[in-house]
Structure formats: structure tokens, C-alpha cells
Design a protein around this nucleic acid. Structure first.
Lengths: 235, 235
DNA sequence: GGCCGCGATTGGTCGGACCACTTCGCTGGC
DNA sequence: GCCAGCGAAGTGGTCCGACCAATCGCGGCC
């Protein structure tokens, strides 16, 4: 028996390799940013083929735990919230019908909380930045640009809330395709003007450093889309 | 040019394969539960090797999108919230220090909302079920059993809130290793009695169908752990 | 008619070969 | 002495072909 821990007999060798590497990171044997041995060495170390090891590495790569740089090596990511929650957007991309509404409900809850926190913590700089995105949204009619500033507006707020994990989660919930899909029909219903009004209300609450007003404004904002979605038959 | 869509030139072939399959699911060409062609056929169809295709499949497998059954074939999962959010537990497992506190803050927000919703929607059956777990928690001293009933108690509430996505998210945030790690030291500080009291308060609020009381009780419950964690130096 | 078993199908693993990119040291010119 | 450029070594990326192992269905046997 070697000292690196005897591998469990269950599951595929690849699955075991994934668990082994995860365990190495969890208990500190591998630190964020550190470089791993080569695929060939790792495979030899765990007694499996390079193919299987590559599958394990690929799996951890899509999870945002590892990062492979061609010609250089394999590295543990910094394990920031953004790294690990990037895959969260996949859920939004693949969700339809009822779960889309559920995701919006989750977003409403988180966005409300984040906005309330931001009202108390936001710096003048960030408040101004949010204001710029607000102005840009009101100045353009181009849907793409509008969406970009919309996302940026909420991102500034999420970051200002001081919880990177929450911000990353909201980022995934508002991912490009997700938003684009929902808004396609939404804005055709003439809700564009109301959306602008809601954004302005959020900004005002932030400027007033009023957490409760901010929470309410954010909840109303997301809730508006939510209600529309629950009524709308979606493809 | 073939009609299945020209693959973009960027990225690795495996990455492209992942996107292709994801796209097939997103636009409905592949439906939940449906069986895919064999690895060999898929590889041929996309013009890549079986090895690369296997890596793509493995990646989508860990994301909970696909499911491979040895000897049978590859299937699209039912794409339930639980399937897709299983990997969320990985984030909790790999988080330490500051992000652990952030995750607890997220949990506090979601748990509060879910408990408030549950207060309005919970059925007598589910309320009784939660009561049983509560009684079991008060009747045992075995940490493992206690933790199991603790998790089950909150799971019943999350499900009663009527939002499977939120329930799956909370499941990940309360995943076994995560809870065990946090609670190890927490309960040694004699907070066990208080935890029981908090659970009882949540249950009372649910029985009274009082959403605001339920929200407050849940927030206080998670907040207690949260505050302890922020004070505690963690390994 | 029902049960058993064999063989085809399909995912899982392996080993090796070669390609593409990065890195870094060496070399040669300035 | 310095630096640009080249080239070899190292490393991830891709492909191939073979074989193993689990599953499933078909056909024959009882």
C-alpha cells in the first residue's frame, strides 16, 4: 500500500482519478496556481493510461478547477468564485419552461439581497460607474449595446455588494444567451421603457443608501420579467 | 459546407465537440432522456477521433448533461435541476476561508427565501415530515445521524418552497463534506443546544404559516453559523 | 411457452505514435 | 558584452488500433 491513499475500487478509473486530484486540492497538497506534473507522470503515478488521465483532466478543466496551457503544463486555477461558477451558466443555457421561471426566482432573491447590500457598501466610484451604464442604456436603441450595459449595470452592483460568490452566481444567471433569450420577446411587449424606469429606481435607491428601497426596486425589476415569463408560452 | 453547421475554427477540437453537443441539446435536436449515437459514430460525424469525442462526452457527463451507461449507450439526462447542479457541491468542497463565509451568506439569503415560501406553501404531510426529523435530531447524540436529519429537515423545507432549482442549489450549499467541515468545530463550542432551538423556531413558524417569522428564523439559524465562521480561523 | 446462453453492440481502458505550441538555452552577429 | 534569432527539449492535443467489460437481444434448448 502506498502512502498516497489507496484508491477505492468503485467506479471507472477516470472517475477515481478525478476524485484523487480533487482530494489533492481539497487537502492542500495542490495549491491554487500551482503547476501539476505532466499528464504522463500523473498517469504513471496513479497507475492509469494517459487517455484516462486526460479525460479526468478535461473534466476538471470544464469544472474550472484546472487549466491546461498547451506546451506549458497543467495548472490549478486560482479557484476564484468566477472560475468555479463559470459552468453555472450552462444550467441557464439548457433550461426551459418551468425551470427558467425558477431560475428567475432565484435571481430575484439573490439580486434583491445583493442590491440591498450594495446600497450600504457601494463606493462613490462604483455608483458613478453604474450611473454611466444607466445613461448609456437610455442613450441607445441598439439591442446588443443595451443588453451589454444592462449586464454591466447589474455586475457593478453585484460586485459592490462585496460578495464575489454571489456576484459570480448572478453573472451565470444573467449570462448572455439566457438574457437574450428571455428578452427577445419581452421587450417587444413595450416593456423597454419600464425596464429603464426600474433601472433608474435602483440607481436612485443606491444613491440614497437605502437598502430597503434598493431591495424592493431590484425585486420589482426581476419580478417584472419573471411574471411576464410565467405568462408567456416559450418555445 | 454541411448542413449541421460549420464548426468554428477556434479552440481545441474537443471544446468544439462539447459546444456542438450542447447546441444540439439547447435547440432541441437532442431531447432529455434520448439516446445518442455511439461514441464511434459521433466521432465520425464530427470528423474527430474517438479519444477526443470521449473527452467531450466525459466533460458533459461531469456537468450532469449526459449519462454514459456501460454496454448500453450514452443518454441525455432528464436535465432536472438536481442533475445539472450536482457539480455545485464541488465549489463548496473546494472553498476555504473567505469564500466559505461568502457561500454561507448566499445560503442564508436563499434559505431565508425558501423557508418563507415554504411557510406559505407547505403541506401538512411535509410539515409532519419536517417535525419527525426535528424530533430525531433531539433524540440522538450521534453526530452523523444528527447531521443526516439536519440536512433532511432543510431539504424538506426547500422542496416545500416549490422551487426545485433553489432546492438543488441549497442541497449543494449544504453538501455533506461542507457541512461536516464547518460543523466540526462549531458544535464543539456548545452551540448544539442553540441549533436545536433554532430548528424548533423554524418549525414553529412553518406550522403557524408565518412567512416573515420563518424568514427571520432561517436567517438567524444560518447567520449563527456564519458569524461563528467569520470569527474562527479555519485550517 | 419460457428460460438459458451465446454473440453482437457499445462504453471503458490501454499503449503508442505523431502534431502543435511553449519555453529556454545556445549561438552567432552586432 | 549584449541581444536577436534559432533550434532542441518538453508538454499538451490529436489520432489510431487493439482489447476488455457490461449490456442487450436473438435464437435454440428444455
Amino acid at each position: 500500500m502506498d502512502g498516497t491513499g489507496t484508491a477505492p475500487r468503485k467506479g471507472t478509473v477516470t472517475q477515481r482519478a478525478i476524485e484523487r486530484i480533487k482530494a489533492m486540492i481539497a487537502d492542500g497538497r495542490l495549491e491554487p496556481g500551482q503547476r501539476l506534473p505532466t499528464e504522463r507522470d500523473l498517469a504513471a503515478e496513479l497507475g492509469i493510461s494517459r487517455s484516462s488521465m486526460r479525460e479526468a483532466i478535461r473534466a476538471l478543466t470544464v469544472l474550472g478547477v484546472l487549466e491546461a496551457r498547451h506546451g506549458s503544463g497543467i495548472y490549478v486555477t486560482r479557484l476564484r468564485a468566477g472560475d468555479l461558477l463559470e459552468t453555472f451558466g450552462v444550467v441557464a443555457d439548457l433550461s426551459r419552461g418551468e425551470r427558467l421561471a425558477e431560475l428567475l426566482e432565484v435571481r430575484r432573491v439573490l439580486e434583491s439581497a445583493a442590491t440591498a447590500l450594495a446600497a450600504a457598501r457601494i463606493t462613490p466610484d462604483r455608483l458613478a460607474e453604474a450611473g454611466e451604464h444607466l445613461a448609456a442604456m437610455e442613450a441607445t436603441e441598439d439591442p446588443d449595446e443595451l443588453l451589454a450595459h444592462d449586464l454591466a449595470f447589474h455586475r457593478v452592483i453585484a460586485v459592490a455588494a462585496g460578495n464575489e460568490t454571489m456576484a459570480a452566481l448572478l453573472e451565470g444567471l444573467s449570462s448572455r444567451t439566457f438574457r437574450a433569450r428571455v428578452r427577445r420577446g419581452y421587450e417587444e411587449d413595450g416593456a423597454l421603457a419600464r425596464t429603464r424606469h426600474e433601472h433608474a429606481a435602483i440607481h436612485r435607491a443606491l444613491a440614497a443608501r437605502d437598502p430597503e428601497a434598493a431591495r424592493a426596486a431590484a425585486a420589482a425589476h426581476v419580478g417584472g420579467v419573471e411574471q411576464w415569463l410565467r405568462r408567456s408560452p416559450e418555445s
